[in-house]
Design a protein around this nucleic acid. Sequence first.
DNA 1: ATTCGTGCAAACCATTTGCAACCAC
DNA 2: GTGGTTGCAAATGGTTTGCACGAAT
Lengths: 163, 163
Amino acid sequence: MSRPQRRFEDWLREHGLRVTHARVVVLEHAFRNFRHFEINELVESLERHRAGVSRATVYRTLPHLVRAGLLRRHDVGIRQTFYEPEYGRKHHEHMVCVRCGKILEFVDDEIERLQEEICQRHRFEPLSHTLQIQGVCRRCQTTAAAPGGPDPPALRRLGADGP
Amino acid sequence: MSRPQRRFEDWLREHGLRVTHARVVVLEHAFRNFRHFEINELVESLERHRAGVSRATVYRTLPHLVRAGLLRRHDVGIRQTFYEPEYGRKHHEHMVCVRCGKILEFVDDEIERLQEEICQRHRFEPLSHTLQIQGVCRRCQTTAAAPGGPDPPALRRLGADGP
DNA sequence: ATTCGTGCAAACCATTTGCAACCAC
DNA sequence: GTGGTTGCAAATGGTTTGCACGAAT
């Protein structure tokens, strides 16, 4: 049994929830197949593998995994909400390319420290945070148009102009 | 004519778009009545004032205002997407209380600087960024339950546990 | 045996869109 | 005049939910 699975099962029991087949399968899939995923990608992966777990259950399970500290949830405008396995990974932030949608990760301890400082100053108790930089990745800067064609709806909605 | 309005009209013309009554009214309303607003709040405000601008037009206008640099758009999980007037305000970030939904602002030049440094290092061209800290505001820390009742759906979805 | 969890399909709700009338240029 | 804009209502699409059945304790 994998480490995250162990932790999830413990967390479920501690919270008076049941350790069900479906919940374990969702966890396994998320951790085995993805680094970043949108819900639909996970659902389709489960369907392809004939996992026998419904979309509804996925939607009901993900918040538990977030609360258990095993997944992190991210909301931007440019992509749909996405999740990423968090267990055992160093905390990091994201740069999202508005052209191709690629996600780059970065770490900065100093920024983390400054955030804590700010929270203390405001007596604000931090639970989580999101730092995302939207922009154009190195590769897309040298490309005239977007690889996926010009301006998908999400980009227009966000108001992301070309440079 | 207000400064932001001037700027919007110029921007529209520069982009070959028309300066219509509806567009101007949306801008005025957003700037006159709100510091932070969700789309529905703006729509309802327009309806109350019998502004005669439809919801569809609001949805079509907001992205223009973002592109014109007059509004900033924010996506979290805890609240619906919200916008805020940006013109003439110092750049700032947000702390969002997961209990009462209140939004606190803060500024930190050092964090801004570090972000630029990181982008340079990765040859990533930044267009905008989002830094949000989700947590419990000072007032809600001393309150047993949430002022608005316990755990609205959005909080559960996000996976926001109490402390 | 009891109670919680699941699948299914319908419901929801924010956002987008097709289209005919309208208005800025 | 005419092509971009708007309002309306219908469509869309991600997410939630009611309910009866199945599974974990």
